[in-house]
Write a protein that binds this DNA or RNA. Structure first.
Lengths: 182, 182
DNA sequence: ACGATAATGTACGGTGCCGTACAGAACCTG
DNA sequence: CAGGTTCTGTACGGCACCGTACATTATCGT
């Protein structure tokens, strides 16, 4: 199936991202990822300097897919209310990505993780706050509202990890939206 | 200062809890905690079976202090609205405990961590939902509202870890309360 | 003050991971 | 197909931690 039997940086990064989702930053270790790919460590050290570089590649992969690629899609939705609704629906539908955003926030003391997480979080909050401003909220209130909305998202992902999130998701999302929309 | 130079299980558990707050479950390792107490491993293995037992003791210490001891205090506040307001203020004021609740939720695949976190989370959600029911919400809506409120708390703790939480905390708390109160 | 028991220190073997060394296979280019 | 370049496997040394063995010191009842 693979075009070449040799492994690329990208393939390592993707495998590392899978491990990152499952076990968090600590689990992104060279030997386990190599085992998952059926490769050995020297292949890895040919392509990467060290473990940090692998973790960073995985994080950048996540940043690209879960944030940067979404921004232009959102920008095409002219109405800010509809845009927020779309975003909330999409976010709560894909629990996996929320899981990871959350995990990374709780492991932010890692020197590799921290800057990426700060960047992604700031970007997301800015996008959400921008929509609230378009809906007529003054900047400070829009930032608070964005923080609250994103917090509900993160917190609900946390509850979902142990099966404590509401089971009727669409009803829950609707009630949250109703509470947060100006 | 210590009544005896010998170390008790409780002292080990407290030191482990401190480490748990700082570095999460993975950081609760025997040798580092021993070093922090200026003791050596054999003291530890005299008092505990293994590392799991230390982690469990730390978690139970947290459960007792941050949940079970609060419940009777809350029960003394007759008015459910006032009770919720008190709870929200107290919760957002003590960021450390929120940090830990959050961290543990993200590490819930650990076999030692999981049952404790499930128990604590269920207890807290039940207390919050109970207050919303007293305020007149039907049970299902009260549970959703409780999940949303606790999610804001968890999510905001996550944002606070990287300094992305709103800086004017009292204003933020007031706006969240306004949105969530029936 | 003395022996039993409780607690601690030192030393060790085992495991999982990091990163390096080096030899060999696979791939390209003339 | 010869030769260098690119990649991969095996083997190694090092570190941090787990848990155990055994010797050693404190503490207490009598």
């Amino acid at each position: 199936m693979p075009r070449s039997a040799r492994l690329s940086r990208e393939e390592w990064a993707e495998a590392a991202l899978a491990v990152l989702v499952e076990g968090g930053p600590g689990a992104v270790a060279v030997e386990p990822v190599a085992a998952r790919l059926g490769a050995s460590k020297s292949s890895f050290y040919w392509l990467f300097d060290n473990r940090r570089a692998l973790l960073l590649a995985a994080l950048e992969c996540w940043e690209r897919r879960q944030t940067e690629e979404i921004v232009p899609v959102l920008a095409e939705i002219a109405d800010p209310g509809e845009r927020l609704r779309f975003l909330v629906e999409a976010a709560f539908a894909a629990t996996e990505s929320g899981d990871l955003a959350l995990r990374l926030l709780t492991e932010a003391e890692d020197e590799v993780v921290r800057p990426v997480v700060e960047r992604v979080t700031a970007r997301r909050l800015a996008v959400i706050a921008g929509s609230f401003e378009e809906l007529g909220l003054p900047p400070a209130a829009a930032r608070d509202r964005a923080a609250a909305a994103y917090s509900v998202y993160l917190g609900t992902a946390a509850l979902a990890r142990i099966g404590a999130a509401p089971t009727d998701r669409s009803g829950y999302v609707a009630s949250v939206l109703a509470a947060l929309m100006p």
